[in-house]
Simulated assay, not measured.
Amino acid sequence: MTVASHNNKNRLVPAGIAAVVLLVLASGTWLAVRAEANVNKVALADAPKGVTVALAQSSSFRAERRYVGTLEPWLSARVGPQLASGFVGTVLVRPGAVVKKGEVLATIDCRNASAASQAIAHQARALSERQKAAAKEASRLGELLDGGYAAPNEVEQKQAAAAANEAQMQALLAQSAGKSLEVDDCVLRSPFDGEVSSRFADPGAFVRPGAAIVEVVDRGVVRLSADVPEIDFDAIAPKTPVKIKLLATGKPLTGEVVRRSPSADTSTRTIHFEVDIPNPGRNIPVGTTAEIHVDVGDPMPATEIPLLSARVRGKSATVFVVDSGVAKKQTFDVFGERGGSLFVATVLKPGTQVVTQGRSLLSDSDRVAAKVEPSAAPAPTPSAVEVAK
């Protein structure tokens, strides 16, 4: 029994070894087959490249010019002394105040001018009395001359003295009128109904003729003025409709060209034009900027694609078009752009897939795996514009 058991054990050892070897071989074979199955036997250059595409949309195009203009008040006046010099006595208004025509805005200490005016007036009154006396004396001598009781030379001297006194009196009256104007100039009044836009001096400041103390504007009607290149002379003809965007408030407005200069500026070769904007609520700030959009020409059919799908050079755009899984490089004429859209000739058919992402990795006739993103596809618009600054 002992010998038999020992023989059985000897036979089990080779069998176990054989089983282990078979198991190892089977595992190796399985791993090799699995690894071989995961190996990509297609060259990377031949594999389709993943790209994102958008669908071209049917649209229309209309050229547009964009200009930048300035909003100016209908009336504007810097109020200050024109004849008198002196220290500012009072300034009764501040920016934002609403004033009426003739309302006092500021005063200047003009006591010197007032005293001088009174002195001249008294001198003129005294000279007037002397002139009257001289005239009466000359008249009496004239009567004596008729009777032969006075010499003609004496009468002529008296008449000349009376005329000289009259001339001196008129000169003094003229000086008095000038001083009166200076005195009146010391009280500064609003020249029209409007609002105070600026205050340049405070009480105690010394001002001279021509210096402004306050500025008054009337913005019941706002003038939008701009200058355009001379080649756009016909684009801004009077009564041409325009679209306006106020940069200060973001409010869109519409209007029409009211005035156009008949000549260009000699230094800049630009044409000046203006648009009147009613502003009864006075809610449009003046001195600010506005964009002016003017349509040019007639609308024409166009195809709209995302701007990022094309490389634009001048008036041509290069686009990768996907057809049957192949990206083809094509060039189309450009009409214009607006926002994130580009408008090209209708040679590019609506519904065509254009590559928006992955363009930099593509070459002509590359195979692609296209993914359409609805958010990337441009929504059709009724019109498009070509921006000209």
Rank of each mutant, 00 (worst) to 15 (best):
Q123H: 00
A124Y: 00
A124N: 02
A124S: 12
A124R: 05
R125D: 12
R125M: 04
R125G: 01
A126E: 07
A126N: 02
L127D: 08
L127Y: 01
L127P: 01
S128L: 13
S128Q: 11
E129N: 03
E129R: 02
E129S: 05
E129G: 02
R130N: 07
R130A: 12
Q131T: 08
K132I: 11
K132D: 10
A133Q: 11
A133Y: 15
A133K: 12
A134V: 08
A135N: 12
A135V: 03
K136H: 08
K136A: 15
E137V: 01
S139V: 03
S139P: 01
R140W: 10
R140P: 03
E143D: 14
L144M: 15
L145F: 13
D146A: 15
D146I: 15
G148S: 09
Y149D: 09
Y149K: 08
Y149I: 01
A150R: 04
A150H: 13
A151Y: 12
A151P: 04
A151C: 05
A151D: 15
P152C: 09
N153W: 06
N153H: 04
N153D: 09
E154F: 04
V155F: 04
E156M: 13
E156R: 15
Q157N: 11
Q157A: 12
Q157K: 14
K158I: 03
K158S: 12
K158C: 01
Q159D: 07
A160S: 15
A160F: 12
A161E: 09
A162R: 09
A162M: 10
A163Y: 01
A163G: 00
A163V: 10
A164K: 04
A164N: 10
N165D: 07
N165W: 00
E166H: 13
Q168M: 04
M169H: 09
Q170F: 01
Q170V: 11
